[in-house]
Amino acid sequence: MSESSLPVTVIGGYLGAGKTTLINRLLAAEHGKRVMVLVNDFGAINIDAQLLESADEDTIALTNGCVCCTMGNDLYMAISDAMKRTPRPDHLIIEASGIANPQKIANTAISDPDLTYNGIVTVVDAENIDDLLADPMICAQVGDQIACADLLVVSKSSDLPIDLRDTLERLSDSEVILADDMQSLLGLTFSDLSSPPKNVLGTHHPTYTQWQYQGDVCLDRNDLKELMLKRPRGIYRAKGFVRSPDGSGWRVQVVGSTISIMPEVSCEQTIMVCIGSTMRFDKSACEAWWAT
C-alpha cells in the first residue's frame, strides 16, 4: 500500500499541558521515521546533546534524521515549506499553540491532496484540567481542544483517576492514554498499517492491535460510507482500498472520527487494515462488522 502523500499529526493542548515534552520524546524515540516537527517556541526544545546533529536559528537536525523547525508567525508558510523539503519527511508533526483549536490545522491536512490526516493528539494536564474547565474565560477553548482530539494523552499523572476519565468522556469519546505510554503513542501514530504491529520499544506485548482483511468485497460509495460509519468504536486508524462494482475502486482513510473516501482509477483487490489500542480494540468485533 504505497502512499505518496505526507502524513500529518497535530499535537494540541492548553499552555503548559506537556506538548513540548511529548514532542521531544517523539523526536528522540526509535521509530525509524524521518519526522519533521513544526513548533511554536524553539527555546523549549531541549534535545539530548548526543542526538543533536546541527542547530541554527530556526532548525534543529537530529542524528536519527528527524528535524525540528520553528513555524514563526506563519503556520501555512511553514507547512508549504515542509511539503517542498528534500528529502521529504516521512511524517509531519505540527504543534498547535496552547490556545489554538487543533482542528483548524488538521483541516489543512484533510483538504490538501498531498497531505494525509493522521489525527489530532491533545495533551491534557491531569493536575489542572479541572481548574481550566471551570474558568469561564477559557473553558470553551480548552473543551474544544479535547472534543476535537482523536487521541487524548494525559500528562503529569501515573494513572488515570476515575474523575478525570469521567471528565474526558463527557467531552470526547476518543481513546485516552497516559503520556508515559510511549509505545501506544508511537504505534498508533507512526505505524504505517502495512505490516504487523512492531515491537516498537522492545517490550514483549504490543499495546496496540491490528486487524486486516484481503479479499473480493465490492461496494459502491454509499454502502462503503455506511459501513465505515458503523465501524467498531475501538478503531483508531483504518486504511484500505475497496473495489467498486464498476471496476474502479475507493481509497479509504479513517482517523478517529474522520472518514475520507476518494475514488481510485483501479483496484484489483480489496484490502482493509485497522489499528487500535489493545485495551479498546476487539478483533472479533472487527470481523463481525466487516462480515455484515
Binding site: Y76, I79, S80, M83, K104, I105, A106, N107, T108, I110, S111, D112, P113
Partner: peptide
C-alpha cells in the same frame, strides 16, 4: 477558511 484555501494558495 484557511484549511480549504490552503491547497489552492500553496
Amino acid at each position: 477558511e484557511m484549511a480549504a484555501m490552503f491547497p489552492i494558495l500553496h
